Amino acid sequence: MKRIVGMGMAVAALALVTGCQDGATTPKPAGTPTTTVGAPGGVQPTGAEQAPVVTKPAGDGTPATAGGGKCVDLKSPVVTAALGKLGANVGGEGFSAQSGTEAKVGSCPALMWVLADTPHGTASSPWHVMLFNQAGYLGTATKKSTSYTSVVGSSDRSVQVQYRWLAASDPSCCPSGGPVVVTLMLGADGHTVTPDRDFPTEVTNPK
């Protein structure tokens, strides 16, 4: 079972809590992982084993990730610093920001995303889904990078991530496993991120 780790809070602890969305308790199946964003001592940040990037939004409420009129500028200092914390991918290079939340400043969602890919990669190369709130970087959807991963939808407080995987006889171009869509929900505290189901073990622990 994998955890989503986010921005440090002085009094938060890595623990199982009830996920909330828009201030209401979100029902979830037994065993569904819920992760409170990071805290000193006991944090296991996703991606690289380092503390997340934490900044502050501009005084006018513009997200820390904003630039060029967009809520998420893929070349913003906050996104660039977060990418640097993912470490090297299988090719030895760092990850690069491929796409992200498209909303414009003035209508920015509470939970934003960036899809990071492998430069010069192939169809099976690893990806990371990076999550941000308006103050900065929360962490990645899964601790380890995953192949055949895409963001298929989002709302103000949620991001839908689709996972696929190779079956035994599949060529690397054409995974037949899945698809499975996991919805990541931002809690009422603005920091806790909760998946609505377990991540497929075929992508988190591939054989």
Rank of each mutant, 00 (worst) to 15 (best):
M1C: 07
K2L: 14
K2H: 13
I4Q: 06
I4C: 12
I4M: 12
M7Q: 08
G8F: 00
M9E: 13
A12H: 14
A13Q: 09
L14D: 11
A15D: 09
A15Y: 08
T18L: 15
T18S: 15
G19D: 10
C20G: 15
D22C: 10
D22L: 07
G23S: 15
T25S: 14
T25M: 12
G31F: 03
G31A: 05
T32F: 00
P33I: 07
T35N: 12
T35M: 07
T46G: 14
T46W: 00
E49F: 04
Q50W: 04
A51F: 08
A51D: 07
A51N: 10
P52W: 03
V54N: 02
V54G: 01
P57V: 02
A58F: 01
G61A: 07
G61K: 13
G61H: 05
G61R: 13
T62K: 02
C71P: 01
C71W: 02
V72Y: 00
D73Q: 03
D73A: 15
D73I: 00
L74Y: 00
K75A: 11
S76H: 03
P77M: 06
V78N: 06
L83D: 02
G87I: 09
A88E: 05
A88D: 04
V90M: 11
G94L: 05
A97N: 08
E102I: 00
K104E: 10
V105A: 04
S107D: 08
C108G: 04
P109R: 02
P109Y: 01
M112T: 04
M112L: 14
W113A: 00
W113Y: 10
A116Q: 03
P119H: 10
P119D: 09
G121W: 02
T122F: 05
A123Y: 13
S124N: 11
S125C: 10
V129S: 05
M130R: 06
F132P: 02
F132K: 02
Y137F: 15
Y137N: 05
G139W: 08
T140C: 15
T142W: 03
T142R: 11
T142C: 15
K143I: 13
K143L: 10
V151N: 13
V151S: 11
V152D: 08
R157Y: 03
S158F: 09
V159R: 03
V159P: 01
V159M: 05
V161Y: 01
Q162A: 15
Y163S: 11
R164Y: 04
S169H: 14
S169G: 09
P171F: 04
C174I: 02
C174L: 04
G177A: 13
G178M: 09
G178S: 14
V181A: 08
T183A: 13
T183S: 14
L184I: 08
L184W: 13
A188C: 14
A188S: 15
D189L: 06
G190M: 10
H191V: 08
H191S: 11
D196M: 12
D196R: 10
R197H: 08
R197C: 06
D198E: 15
T201L: 10
E202T: 08
T204I: 09
